[in-house]
């Protein structure tokens, strides 16, 4: 059962959705450009650095396909990371008012001296805002769901804490966080400087992550 869900999810992620979180876009500065390269630094559960790519489809309704890779700060480079691929579509498309929905498939990894986690998840994010060619400001809400997670425990964990711990795929969903905040940006030449800032709360709205905020300062370079 786990496997079926995982593989369906993976296939859906790779074939249908395409988007990356930090590609915050000024829809009124994008025009007919196809390619966007994005880089960001900020707080995404931890100090985080990201790189991304976006491709705008030639469609009546603006659609951007994106991919994003981010790593948190720390001495070990790739023990923790997050990848997102998905799509972002503008559903409300007035001259200055834009409303968009983004859907991402997520694969992320975490490792510390006690356990290695690999998770497949999804993120749904909605944005509504005011966009001008030189700047924009928008509100955003989203939900990040950790759908299925693989746990592999270290020998230290088994020796010191719980000998009979069971490694494997775990369900139901091991986690879920809501986010809400604002995004804003300034556009010039072929570039955007963007800022996303907001709060994170867990799915029961009673508890929060240890640091319940997110902040991402991004730079987009539009190629053509």
């Amino acid at each position: 059962m786990k496997g079926i869900k995982t593989w369906i999810f993976l296939i859906m992620s790779f074939c249908i959705y395409q988007k990356g979180n930090s590609q915050t876009v000024n829809w009124n500065a994008l025009e007919d450009s196809k390619h966007i390269i994005a880089a960001g630094i900020g707080w995404d559960y931890s100090v985080s650095y990201s790189l991304g790519y976006a491709y705008q489809l030639k469609t009546k309704v603006p659609i951007v396909l994106t991919g994003n890779f981010s790593i948190p700060s720390g001495e070990k480079l790739l023990d923790d990371f997050k990848t997102k691929i998905g799509g972002q579509v503008v559903l409300l498309n007035k001259s200055n008012m834009k409303g968009s929905i983004a859907l991402n498939g997520i694969y992320r990894r975490y490792e510390n001296p006690l356990v290695r986690l690999q998770n497949f998840g999804s993120e749904l994010r909605g944005t509504l805002g005011y966009y001008k060619p030189k700047w924009f400001v928008a509100g955003e809400v989203g939900f990040d769901k950790a759908i299925v997670t693989y746990f592999k425990h270290s020998e230290t964990f088994k020796e010191i804490i719980f000998t009979d711990v069971k490694d494997g795929w775990y369900e139901p969903s091991t986690g879920g966080n809501f986010l809400y905040g604002i995004q804003t940006g300034y556009s010039f030449n072929k570039s955007d400087i963007t800022l996303n800032i907001g709060m994170v709360t867990t799915q029961d709205f009673k508890t929060t992550p240890l640091i319940p905020y997110y902040l991402m300062l991004g730079y987009n370079f539009i190629i053509n």
Partner: peptide
Amino acid sequence: TNDVLFYDQFLT
């Protein structure tokens, strides 16, 4: 520090 923060998106 990252080890006690980053996993908040895996487990809630």
